[in-house]
């Protein structure tokens, strides 16, 4: 699997950064997996308790929407990239000679990184504002603000992932 850590031989500064980055991504994937599993269990438990015990789990709905979905998706962004799930249209690029093709590839990466950074910068502002908001989930007094930290976190790590590694071009999609 591409999202497990490869043995790192390069112990220069860059190598170390990459090692930490990989470790970070590794943790994010597991957080995303956990969120998905909880989403599945909590919502199912809600349906079962509602039908058989006449007592739904009120918090399930909002917790799923505001925290679990966002964690599953935003924290999963780097692994989507590592897994080669970034769908590209390459039929034109594939026909180019090596130099223009390399220019196009680099351009694609620069645009992708810039785009992620704009996302990260914009969403971090929203997160900052939301942290000071008194809004809480209506079924339990859990603040909604911290959930807004998930998008900038995901986009930042995604930008780093694109910066340090290229996805394998031969894999067109997650399978």
């Amino acid at each position: 699997m591409s999202d497990t850590m490869p043995p790192s031989q390069d112990m220069t500064v860059l190598g170390r950064i990459e090692k930490w980055q990989r470790r970070c991504e590794f943790m994010l994937v597991y957080a995303a997996v956990t969120a998905t599993a909880i989403m599945m269990l909590l919502t199912s438990a809600d349906a079962v308790c509602r039908y058989f015990l006449n007592s739904p789990i009120l918090i399930a709905y909002e917790l799923t929407e505001k925290y679990l979905m966002t964690a599953a998706i935003f924290l999963g962004l780097p692994s989507a990239f590592r897994g080669g799930a970034f769908i590209r249209v390459t039929f034109l690029v594939d026909r180019l000679s090596p130099l223009p093709r390399s220019i196009a590839d680099h351009l694609a990466y620069i645009v992708a990184i810039l785009c992620c950074l704009v996302f990260a910068a914009a969403t971090v502002q929203q997160a900052y504002r939301s942290l000071f908001e008194p809004t809480k989930l209506s079924a339990l007094p859990i603040p909604v603000g911290p959930a807004y930290l998930l998008p900038p976190l995901g986009f930042l790590i995604l930008a780093l992932a694109i910066l340090t590694g290229s996805p394998r071009r031969d894999r067109p999609a997650a399978s």
């Binding site: 699997m1 999202d3 994937v29 995303a32 997996v33 998905t36 599993a37 599953a72 998706i73 935003f74 999963g76 962004l77 692994s79 989507a80 897994g83 799930a85 970034f86 769908i87 999609a173 997650a174």
Partner: peptide, 15 residues
């Protein structure tokens, strides 16, 4: 593994 693959595919769709 099923959960990981799901995360990868879904994250891409949502992006």
């Amino acid at each position: 593994e099923a959960l990981k693959s799901t995360i990868r595919t879904s994250a891409m769709i949502f992006l």
